[in-house]
Design a protein around this nucleic acid. Structure first.
Lengths: 163, 163
DNA sequence: CATTGTTATATATCATGTTATAGATTTTGA
DNA sequence: TCAAAATCTATAACATGATATATAACAATG
């Protein structure tokens, strides 16, 4: 059956990018589930932002993640309930709420950075290895590549691992 | 402020593709709103599928659009309520429901094909014109390009148009 | 210092993707 | 032929993106 989104080319590029993005996230989720933490793949960018940049306000998070502010508010609430984030009012501006990693959040990020993120990054890099040429062809190659071997089969075993 | 998603490269490729896809769809929406039909940009691929392939069952639509079946069921309900689609049971298999364009749906697709889809396709092609090289760099160029000039400023005036 | 405008965040609502599962129909096979 | 398995669609529940708007705090101006 013809893949209509692919056939339509530039006309449906938005739908196509979303579709590929969702597929990548779903496959990354399977790798992240090894951490046994009930955190969705889409929440990790927020954790990574706090890891890279330190405590940030809600608005700053929205800006550096490129999403709308209400999405950040919701994610922060969710991750706070899981005990991964804490929120404290800014001292100089009572409107701003500063978000930071808790000890548990810090630990989750550290473990993820050590044990999972490199695997995901390598698997995606493997998927995209050798891609060149027009965007639409690269996207087709990614779709075909994912169909041929999902991310979790592209994870390299750590070098020198006992297993 | 650093764009964390972009900085993280392959690790956040899924989030990044979704983000770009949503932005493209939102901008395409502005062009589609000219049709004065309360149909979201994300519904047009379904209409285009029926236009290209003729009447299809719910499952066939899901397959050729690359989305999960419940999403198709919902979209079909929505577009049926707008009078753009009609659904009839298959004669040979009572489980299947065959979806087809109504007269109004046919007209909407024809108008969109003539008046709007070419504009969108050209605008996106313009955005992606001249892109080459590694995927991440092409994505960065698209993000920068959208920031510099959104889709509706990339629409070419029809040749020989009075205006 | 009161009023007015701006900014930061939260909330409400909607859109649309997912997975899991229920119900109806068809197919299979002893 | 009938029970079991498979298939098709709908529904429920959830996740997460968006926009619009309310509320609270700050800033500016008379």
């Amino acid at each position: 059956m013809e893949d209509v989104i692919r056939s339509l080319g530039f006309l449906c590029l938005g739908s196509r990018l979303k579709r590929i993005g969702e597929q990548l996230q779903a496959e990354a989720q399977r790798l992240l589930d090894r951490l046994d933490v009930p955190v969705q793949a889409s929440q990790y960018p927020l954790l990574a932002a706090l890891d890279r940049l330190g405590p940030l306000s809600v608005g700053e998070l929205a800006q550096c993640l490129g999403v709308a502010q209400p999405g950040v508010t919701r994610s922060v609430s969710l991750l706070s309930e899981l005990g991964l984030l804490e929120v404290s009012p800014s001292t100089d501006d009572q409107r701003r709420r500063i978000v930071s990693l808790t000890w548990d959040g810090r630990r989750l990020v550290d473990v993820a950075k050590r044990d999972v993120w490199p695997s995901i990054e390598n698997a995606v890099a493997d998927l995209c290895a050798g891609l060149s040429g027009p965007l639409l062809e690269q996207l087709a190659a990614i779709e075909d590549g994912l169909a041929a071997a999902p991310l979790d089969r592209r994870v390299k075993k750590p070098e020198g691992a006992a297993q």
